[in-house]
Nucleic acid binder design. Structure first.
Lengths: 135, 135
DNA sequence: CAGTATCCAGCAAGATACTG
DNA sequence: CAGTATCTTGCTGGATACTG
């Protein structure tokens, strides 16, 4: 990647690594799970219930990914009815800061974005309708 | 979504909208393009060259999406060799702030993440190798 | 309860070719 | 130059069923 701009912050060095983190944040469920675990440690089924709409498969995959990246810690209690708890690591907790910042930005600008979309879509529609005798 | 945690910041209200924004940020190319345009307005081919590896199709799609969300403004100069410029809107520029924050976090924690992954993968490998007479 | 395994649909995305 | 159109592929992600 050559997104070479000089402002102190993001150089092209480590660019793919940063992209990977961004991708994880962009994943549909990751942030939801992180935010849910931010409150307190939870069990598998608790998360599944909380994050409505996620499938077991996706939850497992997501948790695996988060665990692999060291954002979530998985603890197995070897008892008769299996008991597994997931909790944020220090790293995971530190991630909630910038994520909340982004989430807050998103929330604050939803009206702008919605307006822009409505505008854009309106123009799209007009374009389609305004080629009268052409074709 | 019922990711109901109370800390002032992210409620489940507008949750999907926020997710959409997050998804856009998570898109492989969006952030790269935004960061590139942060410097100054650019033409289509300039962006294509800068963001190495993107196809025309993906660039067009990405720019369309960013334009639709009001993050990027597209200006066509009706001259003989077509000339189109893309630039960040005020909204787009305001997004660079939290994105850079996230990018910075990512950069700062790359070592931690890499270490965690190495750890995890090592344990995975061991697991596979340590079931000797079992199978 | 907490997964794993399997199957399958849909879309993301690359390559390529054509156009105003 | 700045796209659009078309084809194809591979991954994402959902549903379902089975297991320790």
């Amino acid at each position: 990647m050559n997104v070479t701009n000089n402002p102190p912050g993001l150089e092209h060095t480590d660019c793919q690594k940063v992209s990977q983190v961004l991708a994880r944040v962009g994943e549909k469920w990751s942030v939801l799970i992180i935010m849910f675990l931010a409150e307190k440690p939870r069990r598998f089924t608790e998360i599944k219930r909380a994050v409505n709409g996620i499938s077991q498969r996706m939850l497992t995959l997501c948790l695996r990914g988060l665990e692999r990246d060291g954002l979530v810690k998985r603890t197995v209690f070897p008892v008769v009815p299996p008991h597994v708890e997931y909790e944020l690591t220090a790293l995971g907790r530190s991630l909630t800061q910038p994520v909340i910042a982004l989430g807050t930005w998103a929330r604050d600008h939803i009206p702008d974005i919605d307006a822009a979309r409505a505008d854009f879509d309106a123009r799209e529609g007009v374009q389609a309708a305004q080629a009268p005798g052409q074709r």
